[in-house]
Simulated assay, not measured.
Amino acid sequence: MAIEPGAKAPDVELKDEHGQSVSLAAFRGRKNVVLLFFPFAFTGVCTGELCALRDRLPTFVNDDTQLLAVSNDSPFALRVFAEQEKFGYPLLSDFWPHGTVSRAYGVFDEEKGCAVRGTFIIDQEGVVRWTVINALPDARDLNDYVTALQAL
């Protein structure tokens, strides 16, 4: 069961594509966070979604908001993916222990071994304010994220 709006967000501390630790707690009191889970790097729908975010980056990475994208891929795969697509925002690896953070947010598909398409908008106090969960083949609508961020 995915984390619902109004719940305290479980903390995230994962390595990014450069091996640096990134913690959700580091943004508390400073920025809202768009925490986006995606199944796998280099796949069609995931690449399309992440490139669309890249193309609208000032909306999702600015003085008030930080985008963090999480997959169950290794940091090495995420680094190549980020460099190839020039994302400009952190890709976090939930590779080992496999899916720990994805499970904490209720978006890990045990049968497939990866996260489904879950997005959580977390306010500066660490409270989940908006969520959307899509099945693996179904892309999310970025305009919904923008509307949810504007409501904070």
Rank of each mutant, 00 (worst) to 15 (best):
T43C: 12
N134W: 00
L53E: 01
A25H: 15
N32F: 10
S71K: 00
Y89N: 10
A41L: 14
H18K: 14
L68A: 05
Q124V: 15
A2Y: 13
M1R: 13
V127S: 08
G44Y: 12
T119D: 12
R54H: 09
E83C: 13
L67F: 04
P58Q: 14
Q20M: 11
G118T: 07
Q150W: 05
N72H: 07
A104P: 04
K112Y: 15
F38K: 07
P137S: 09
A77I: 14
P39R: 03
L24Y: 05
S93N: 08
P75I: 10
S21E: 14
I122H: 00
G88H: 01
S102E: 11
G99P: 01
E125S: 08
D11Q: 05
D64W: 11
T43Y: 04
D64N: 10
R140P: 05
G106V: 00
M1W: 11
A77P: 11
A69Y: 10
V70I: 15
P97S: 13
D55P: 04
A82S: 08
T119G: 14
D144L: 13
Y89C: 10
F38R: 04
A25Q: 13
E17Y: 10
E125V: 00
T100P: 00
K15L: 04
L14Y: 03
F40K: 11
W130A: 12
I133V: 06
Q84C: 08
